[in-house]
C-alpha cells in the first residue's frame, strides 16, 4: 500500500482508478497513442490545477489577500505584490512592458541566487574538497590524488575555444573522455532509479490492485 489513499471504499475506488491510469499510460507500448495522449492531457490539467490550488490557497491568500483585507493601510509590499501579480496574470492583454516587469524581478532573483549559491555553496567548498587531506593515510593519499587528478582533468575538459598547447590539449581531451564516462555512470544510476520505479508500479498492480502478492 503506497499510503496515498486509504483502505475504505474511496481508497478502493482510488486503487482501481490508479490501476486504470497506469494501464492507460502503458498502453503507449501497444500503439494505443490516443489513450496515452488523453492521459497526458489529464496529467497536464491535474498538475496545473494542483499548482494553482497550492499557489492560491497557501501563498497568495495568506501572504497577499489576507494582509490586505486585515490592514489595507498597513504594509505597502502586498499592494505592490498585488499589482505585479495582476500584471503577470494579465500580461496577455497588456502592453509588453507591463508584463515584462514582474518577469524581470523573477529573473533578477533567480540570477542572483544562482550566482551566489554557485560560488559560495558549490565552487569554494568543492575546490576545497578536491585538495588532498592534510594528514592522510597512504590509501587516502592515493585515492585523494586520483580523485583530484580526475577533477582537474574534467575541469580542463570544460575549456572550449581556448588556445592551448599540446599538453593542455591532451588534458582537455582526456577530461572530456572522463566527463563522458561520468555521464555514462550517471546513466547507470538513472537506469537503476527508473527500474525501481517500474518494479514499484508493477508491484502496485500485483499487490494493491490484484492482491496477488502481500
Amino acid at each position: 500500500m503506497n499510503g496515498l489513499v486509504g483502505t475504505d471504499v474511496a481508497g478502493t475506488a482510488a486503487t482501481w482508478v490508479a490501476a486504470v491510469m497506469t494501464v492507460a499510460v502503458w498502453s503507449y507500448f501497444t500503439g494505443a497513442g490516443r489513450i496515452f495522449r488523453l492521459a497526458q492531457y489529464l496529467l497536464a490539467g491535474l498538475a496545473t490545477g494542483f499548482l494553482v490550488l497550492v499557489s492560491l490557497r497557501e501563498v497568495l491568500v495568506p501572504r497577499l489577500v489576507s494582509p490586505l483585507l486585515a490592514d489595507p493601510a498597513g504594509d505597502l509590499i502586498p499592494w505592490i505584490g498585488l499589482a505585479l501579480v495582476g500584471l503577470l496574470v494579465g500580461a496577455r492583454w497588456l502592453p509588453p512592458l507591463a508584463g515584462s516587469l514582474p518577469i524581470a524581478l523573477l529573473v533578477a532573483a533567480t540570477t542572483a541566487f544562482a550566482l551566489g549559491g554557485a560560488v559560495v555553496g558549490t565552487l569554494l567548498p568543492q575546490l576545497g574538497a578536491s585538495m588532498l587531506p592534510p594528514a592522510p593515510q597512504p590509501a587516502d593519499l592515493v585515492n585523494g590524488a586520483i580523485s583530484a587528478a580526475i577533477t582537474g582533468l574534467v575541469l580542463f575538459g570544460f575549456l572550449h575555444g581556448v588556445r592551448r598547447g599540446r599538453v593542455a590539449g591532451l588534458a582537455a581531451g582526456t577530461g572530456r573522455w572522463l566527463l563522458l564516462g561520468g555521464i555514462g555512470g550517471w546513466l547507470g544510476f538513472l537506469l537503476v532509479s527508473r527500474l525501481a520505479l517500474l518494479v514499484d508500479r508493477v508491484g502496485f498492480l500485483l499487490g494493491d490492485w490484484l492482491g496477488l502478492v502481500p
Binding site: G185, F189, A196
Partner: peptide
C-alpha cells in the same frame, strides 16, 4: 532517489 546520488554525494 538513486539517480541524484552522483550530483549530491560531493556535498
Amino acid at each position: 532517489p538513486t539517480f541524484l546520488h552522483p550530483e549530491v554525494a560531493p556535498y
